[in-house]
Amino acid sequence: MEERYLRNLGPLTEAEQALLASKTVFLAGLGGLGGHLLEHMLRLGVGAIVTADGDRFTPSNLNRQLLATEDAMGQPKAQAAAERAAAVNPSVRVTVVSTPLTARNRDALLAGCDLALDGLDNLEARRILAAGCDRAGIPLVHGGIRDWCAQVAVIPPGSGLLDRIYPPHLSELSPSGTVSPVPAWCAAVQAAQALCLLCGRPAPLWGKLLAADLLYGEQEILPL
């Protein structure tokens, strides 16, 4: 085993660490959630990451997005992701796409992936991603943030449970603020769920939604 993974042992077995290296994850979005999710996947040591984001960094990203730095202003987020991956763990095969996820490119992006991580910030793209996961037969580890609040769910393929979280009557959401601990917390919970799935363990939030309010220190787990 590579020395870099020694401190993963305990929480993970050697067999699980080796299994991770055979797994591919799709990461949709490289903003507040996506930057942290990328970091977790790199340090855990998954085999490959495919990620897509068509945005470039702006100063308003600096309050919460891990990949946003002063030097990166104006750069594509996908470029920053590739550079971070090379700096943290070059053994992970990383494919970055600097265009947004669409109904046209999703099947190609999801092909061969074991699960998808939701780092998106809008309902339309989430619905496209969920439909793609259904077609690919892979689980979607959903995350969403707003204000002081975060939510995480593991959506089984074909379950249609994203509609329980975002009913069809909901149209697009207006952009809202949040603070740095919220995406960090949310992405950590998402990454832990993904880690369970990738290691073949049960994911505690399979078919459930964890809703957290960091302002009050409260969490609720809801059936979906």
Binding site: G32, L123, I145, A150, E220
Partner: peptide
């Protein structure tokens, strides 16, 4: 009754 708003940022 429990009511949750949409939480959809990322």
């Amino acid at each position: 009754v429990a009511i949750f708003p949409p939480t959809g940022g990322g």
